[in-house]
Design a protein around this nucleic acid. Structure first.
Length: 448
RNA sequence: GGCUCUAUCGUCUAACGGCUAGGACACAAGAUUCUCAUUCUUGUAAUCGGGGUUCGAUUCCCCGUAGAGUCACCA
């Protein structure tokens, strides 16, 4: 497939949608795979809804993902009105479009001169790269409005003109555009430009199998990015929604995707966005981070409520990192659970009901008291610089008293939880002072 | 409702018309273990229905059914 040109044409009327990112990815993969070009165009003809802020955010988001395009050129439709006007004038002169004085739909009562396509009312069949032949009778479309005025072209006209002017050969877009295709083909034929090859990608679906939208939760790339989904995981997961490599391989870098990409393996049916599998991908990539990189990762977007916790300090966080990383798949998960939840024992005084200190094999709560006191005594002079040292110190006692008999209450005393990391790990993370204090508190709770 | 598209485990998906329908996530069980997590092992689970074509349909055709998309002077 020689001389391929694909495009990314976002409309800067909102945040970068996860679906837009995926469509951009597929255009990128397709172009790169076959040595083609990828161009970018901002579809900002709707002046009331488009903003520079959204445009900048979308561009930044795509670049963050590693998706770059030819020359980094930004084409803006809002700056091309004269170009569209020449096409419009030619169409009117040719009789393929006409001026029409009508009451404004946007401003009722006002009379405006819009431009309508003269619909030849024909049946159109186009060959979709993914779905095969698709046929529409365009009669039902009527005379499509292609411009609000001679200087104010609308989407269907601008998209056709720009795809032609920018040399776009392949249009890969969401399949919600299928029904737009016949009217764009009508315009192509009216102005006499070639028809690009269309490939309509299956949509990303919400759990109820409808088009993913805000009412279903997070849809913007930034929300996932801030939650701690890495670009590698996002790219990888998005690529596998509606596409497969033809092998069992699931983990791909962007470059590997370029090499493996084959448009014949694009699915037809929509794909449900599964946050759990997405999180699994994220954890896979997190597992590959060095301790240093993971620490930097977890410290990003650090919530102020977390660093405001009574016992928060960086040293303790550093000691907790290895324990944290095997338990979470996004940093947001950790942030939330540490502020108020399952991991609050890292930086907060544990609060718990005294009876949970009781080991299941004991008859009474008081049975654990001498064990805790013994452990407390031994820990007073212990070396807290490594959890292995703490373990080798306490292990003989645990074997003597019974592992659960000692370790369970010790762990509960340190974490306040029935489920938590082991007491050696906890003691190491908390440090000498806090460990001794928490055991002391547990003993006091039993005594009263 | 009109038009268009789609249909394999709960989810993402594999299977030149031909092995017992494979893999992953999730879930469950077991091992390890004081509990949790991690790790390892195992397991449950699918071809929407009905007709054809064929020696043989997940696969091809038709009809249903279900779901989705779209019907702007938005993109």
């Amino acid at each position: 497939m020689p001389n391929i040109v694909t495009r990314i044409p976002p409309s800067p009327t909102g945040h970068l949608h996860i679906g837009t990112a995926r469509t951009a990815l597929f255009n990128y993969l397709f172009a790169k795979r076959y040595g083609g070009k990828l161009v970018f165009r901002s579809e900002d003809t709707d002046k009331t809804r488009s903003t520079k802020k959204f445009e900048a955010e979308i561009i930044e988001g795509l670049n963050w993902l590693g998706l770059s395009w030819d020359n980094d050129t930004i084409i803006r439709q809002s700056e091309r009105a004269p170009l569209y006007r020449t096409y419009l004038e030619k169409m009117i002169a040719d009789g393929t479009a006409y001026l029409s004085e009508e009451e404004s739909k946007n401003n009722p009562g006002e009379t405006v001169t819009i431009v309508r396509l003269k619909n030849p009312n024909k049946v159109i069949t186009f060959s979709d790269l993914i779905r095969g032949d698709i046929t529409f009778d365009t009669t039902e479309l009527g005379d499509v409005v292609i411009a609000r005025s001679i200087d104010d072209a609308l989407y269907h006209l601008t998209v056709v003109v720009d795809d032609f002017e920018m040399g776009v050969t392949h249009v890969l877009r969401g399949d919600d555009h299928i029904s737009n295709t016949p009217r764009q083909i009508l315009i192509q034929e009216a102005i006499g430009v070639p028809r690009p090859i269309y490939a309509h990608l299956p949509l990303i679906l919400a759990t109820d199998r409808s088009k993913m939208s805000k009412r279903h939760g997070a849809v913007s790339l930034n929300e996932y990015r801030e939650a701690g989904y890495t670009k590698e995981a996002i790219i990888n997961y998005l690529a596998l929604l509606g596409w497969n490599p033809g092998t069992d391989q699931e983990l791909f870098t962007l470059n590997e995707l370029v090499e493996a990409f084959d448009e014949r393996h694009i699915h037809k049916a929509g794909a449900v966005f599964d946050i759990k599998k997405f999180s699994w991908f994220n954890k896979e990539y997190l597992d590959r981070l060095s301790l240093k990189d993971f620490t930097a990762y977890i410290s990003e977007n650090f919530p102020p409520q977390l660093s405001a916790l009574p016992q928060y300090n960086e040293d303790r966080l550093t000691r907790a990192i290895p324990t944290i990383r095997e338990r979470i798949s996004t940093r947001q998960e950790f942030h939330e659970l540490a502020v108020a939840g399952e991991y609050d024992y890292f930086f907060s005084n544990p609060t718990y009901e005294t009876p949970i200190l009781k080991w299941k094999n004991d008859d009474s709560l008081t049975a654990v008291l001498p064990r805790l006191e013994k452990a407390l005594e031994m820990l007073k002079t212990a070396d807290f610089t490594a959890k292995e040292g703490l373990k080798s110190l306490l292990w003989p006692l645990a074997e003597e008293l019974g592992k659960g008999e000692l370790l369970w209450p010790l762990r509960v005393a340190l974490s306040g939880q029935e489920r938590s990391p082991d007491p050696f790990t906890l003691a190491f993370i908390l440090g000498s002072e806090e460990t001794l204090l928490r055991i002391k508190i547990a003993c006091d709770k039993i005594k009263v």
